[in-house]
Simulated scan of single mutants.
Amino acid sequence: MRMGERVEWALHCCFNLGFVGPDVAVTAARLAAFHGLPAAYLNKQLQAMARAGIVESSQGPGGGFRLARSPQQITLMDVVTAIEGPDPAFRCTEIRERGPAGMWGTSQRACTIDAAMRQADLAWRRSLAGQTVADLMATFQNTYPAMPDRIKDWFTTAHA
């Protein structure tokens, strides 16, 4: 399964908003600047996450994005689904029913390849559903103890 960079961007936004905390809204431009991303394109990903209930947005002075739920309640699968959609990674088009193979009667049973691919898809979805943004934050904090405070400071102080 290949996920686009939009998933990486969205996860980093959740990660950073988790460290900033629920009391501070961060603009899309500010989130984009932190990783050198195009703000307009990142804003589209943030809007997709808002529609999925992962982040919430507020308008006006002091407006921006914040997590809509605690980091413990946001799974990696929630973010992937918000950005990439709910469709399975593999879609069987039943090519076994075409050409000479179509006459051999194999289509009376489930496609062996489709079954294997669905099993793999389910495994990675379960793995992502079993990990939360809070899990990532904890791993990061254990590896880089000073960084969460630095991230929060960067987002909550004015920069020229």
Rank of each mutant, 00 (worst) to 15 (best):
Asp114Ala: 15
Val80Gln: 02
Gly60Ser: 04
Thr143Glu: 15
Arg69Val: 07
Met137Gly: 07
Cys13Gly: 01
Tyr41Leu: 11
Gly60His: 04
Ala101Tyr: 08
Ser58Tyr: 08
Thr156Glu: 10
Asn43Gly: 04
Ala28Arg: 04
Ala101Met: 06
Arg66Asn: 03
Gln73Trp: 11
Phe19Gly: 11
Leu67Tyr: 07
Thr81Met: 12
Gln131Arg: 14
Met1Lys: 05
Gln119Asp: 15
Ser70Asn: 15
Asp87Trp: 14
Gly18Glu: 02
Arg51Asp: 10
Arg125Pro: 06
Gly102Glu: 06
Met3Asn: 12
Ile113Met: 06
Cys13Glu: 05
His159Leu: 10
Trp104Asn: 09
Leu11Gly: 04
Phe15Asp: 01
Arg109Cys: 12
Ala52Thr: 01
Gly64Met: 12
Ser107Gly: 07
Ala50Met: 01
Glu97Ile: 05
Leu122Val: 08
Arg30Trp: 08
His159Ala: 10
Val26Thr: 04
Ala39Glu: 02
Val20Trp: 02
Met117Thr: 08
Gln119Cys: 15
Ser107Trp: 05
Arg51Phe: 13
His12Met: 13
Arg125Val: 00
Thr27Ile: 03
Asp121His: 14
Arg118Cys: 06
Gln59Glu: 13
Leu76Cys: 12
Arg91Asn: 13
Ala134Ile: 01
Glu94Asn: 14
Met147Tyr: 15
Phe140Cys: 06
Met137Trp: 01
Gly102Cys: 05
Ile95Gln: 10
Ala10Arg: 00
Ser107Leu: 02
Gly36Lys: 07
Gly4Ser: 12
Glu84Pro: 03
Phe65Ser: 07
Phe34His: 08
Ser57Val: 03
Phe155Ser: 00
Asp23Pro: 00
Phe90Met: 08
Asp23Ile: 06
Ile83Arg: 02
Thr132Ile: 11
Ala48Tyr: 07
Ser107Lys: 06
